[in-house]
Design a binder for these strands. Structure first.
Lengths: 161, 161
DNA sequence: GTCAATGGTTGATGATGTCAATTGTTTATG
DNA sequence: CATAAACAATTGACATCATCAACCATTGAC
């Protein structure tokens, strides 16, 4: 059910393991990334269980997340998910069967089918996003100075991206 | 991956309209977390492709990552992966067929089978870990000041964890 | 010695993912 | 305009990943 789990944050160092990410050796980017990497895997380990709280698979949760921004073409969603278009068909089939999304043929281009959330889908997405948006303990425990600095750093980084 | 709705405060009974990217909800933790969340999911999106560089599925990559720490019982691995033990059987079957891992019956308890990396497995893991440790573009592009600040912030956060 | 608990496997089933081929609809080009 | 190329979505074949229930072998407790 997973796809992302970890469990290495507890005990480490049993074997030398020539290349381990646990000590960002070389440069500043590696050092910073190594630490972020730790947070990433810890958080992602919980993601399937978190999605399951809403009776969603991890991928379905992703779809709902993306769909909140507005209507999306199937192909666009496939691009967002970095997967084949044929995969999206079945994915949407199941979400549609649950009454969470709807296919609507585009007026401009009748090849395209746009995806929109139903009322129920939007409601579920709202609860999901609220859950996802809650900062994990590690973040919540940070002092305000660090939080503000972190926010500003990330804003700059995402802006120049 | 495009916009990112704040996800913490919107109740979503209507179409979200234009996105309030990085508006981050109420408090400082939510603002900072919202931005980090974006980075994490961007990275997550690339993980399957990254594993595929080594002709590994995402889950297989995780197994290799875990196995580097030393020998593991199948059940322990199942626990790390947060999945059913029966799932691990097939997983290990395929890795063993590729000559990356080996099952060794435990001396103490003949029910238990310990997993160890083969030579080829250890070599592949080394390359995988090096690849995982490489900072993504968004991090690599950060100015040194931000990197140092980010590193220090994360060190503090992970230490007090 | 008996019997419950444990570790791993097997079989059934469903979700997720790929690729190749198909259908229907633009769009480009001669 | 007609035909070909490109594109969006679906379908079908197939592998992987995940669960659950049932099973076998071993262990440990009584």
């Amino acid at each position: 059910m997973n796809g992302f789990s970890d469990g290495s944050s507890e005990q480490v160092t049993r074997r030398p393991a020539s290349t381990d990410v646990s000590e960002g050796g070389s440069g500043l980017p590696e050092q910073a990334w190594t630490l972020l990497f730790e947070l990433l895997h810890t958080h992602m380990r919980n993601f399937p269980a978190l999605a399951a709280e809403f009776e969603l698979s991890p991928v379905q949760a992703h779809v709902l997340r993306q769909l909140g921004e507005g209507a999306l073409a199937m192909s666009t969603l496939a691009h967002y998910l970095s997967c084949d278009a044929s995969n999206v068909t079945g994915l949407v089939d199941r979400l549609e069967a649950r009454g969470l999304v709807e296919r609507k043929s585009s007026e401009q281009d009748r090849r395209v089918k746009m995806l929109v959330l139903t009322e129920a889908g939007a409601e579920l997405r709202g609860r999901l996003m609220a859950r996802l948006g809650a900062p994990p303990p590690l973040i919540a425990a940070m002092p305000d100075e660090d939080l503000a600095a972190l926010r500003d750093i990330m804003r700059r980084a995402l802006k120049t991206q």
